[in-house]
Design a protein around this nucleic acid. Structure first.
Lengths: 153, 153
DNA sequence: GCAAGCTTGATGCCCTTGCATGTATTGCTA
DNA sequence: TAGCAATACATGCAAGGGCATCAAGCTTGC
């Protein structure tokens, strides 16, 4: 498969990847907003922070985990902070750093959002696939695109 | 599979769908920009217009094909028109309508962009997949998410 | 121990997108 | 056929994201 010439099939996979994500993400985001919740990006950050044990995460860690640009992390955290969902603290060992920690209010939002989020995923992804085997297969193939290798996990 | 509870596997497929598209689209878009070309959204519109025989497409048709919001079509076409890549004409049968047609300059851009685009797809999708069978399988599964059914094509 | 360079994060500017609304035209209905 | 709803597209405004730049702190080499 020479560099300049992906097969027809690869091109079709690409086109559908973009279209499917666009459509499904749009639908899920719409459901979430209709239920009165903030954008999914907020959920993603809060989830990462909620999982992080201890003192919270540095901007850099959020950036790496969510594939965001650095300047977007700054402003996204700004908004979350303004909404009272996270706190910022300077890092003792590194005067440049900001440690971002989820607040009880942030944890509460996570808890309240999950049922709506879960239902949207079931509606727009689960229902479209023909069962567990297809879901697993899709997850595996997409995993290759994000360099997860092909092993389990 | 009750509405409120997608399986773990479905949730993982969802998460990877978002992440894979984000990553791959970002990488392709970056490659395209680095080569000095406009955003992929322009290519998509021009491609749709290029395929359309005859008088061009209505805004509504572009909207449906590319899954765009109506107001975004207006402004995207504005930009393309400003760049000389498309022309707008009123529709004879419907005084409200706009007919958008690709210009020779637009067709030229399509031709010049394709090699760079193709190479980016090969690099960021083709190389990550383990051959034709996987590409086909991925395309099929993604097709289900955009309601293409499971048949061929 | 200090200057140069790197890392971490913030910010100004502009473009794009989302949301609401406006305007013109068509179609339906009584 | 007058009036009203629906359709097709445009636009003002605000929020979000990309790009370049800036400031502060750390590290390294001399």
């Amino acid at each position: 498969m020479p560099e300049g010439a992906p097969s027809e099939t690869v091109v079709r996979a690409w086109a559908r990847l973009v279209k499917a994500q666009h459509k499904v993400l749009g639908a899920v985001e719409t459901d979430i907003k209709r239920a009165g919740f903030p954008p999914l990006a907020w959920y993603d950050v809060l989830l990462a922070l909620g999982r992080a044990q201890g003192e919270g995460l540095r901007h850099l860690e959020i950036q790496a985990e969510l594939l965001l640009a650095q300047h977007n992390v700054s402003r996204l955290v700004d908004r979350l902070q303004k909404a009272g969902l996270v706190e910022r603290r300077p890092v003792a060992e590194d005067g440049r750093g900001q440690l971002v920690k989820i607040t009880p209010s942030g944890r509460d939002l996570l808890r309240r959002m999950w049922p709506a989020y879960r239902a949207a995923i079931a509606r727009h992804v689960g229902r479209k696939l023909g069962g567990e085997a297809q879901a697993r297969s899709l997850a595996d193939l997409l995993g290759r695109l994000i360099d997860l290798g092909e092993g389990p996990k």
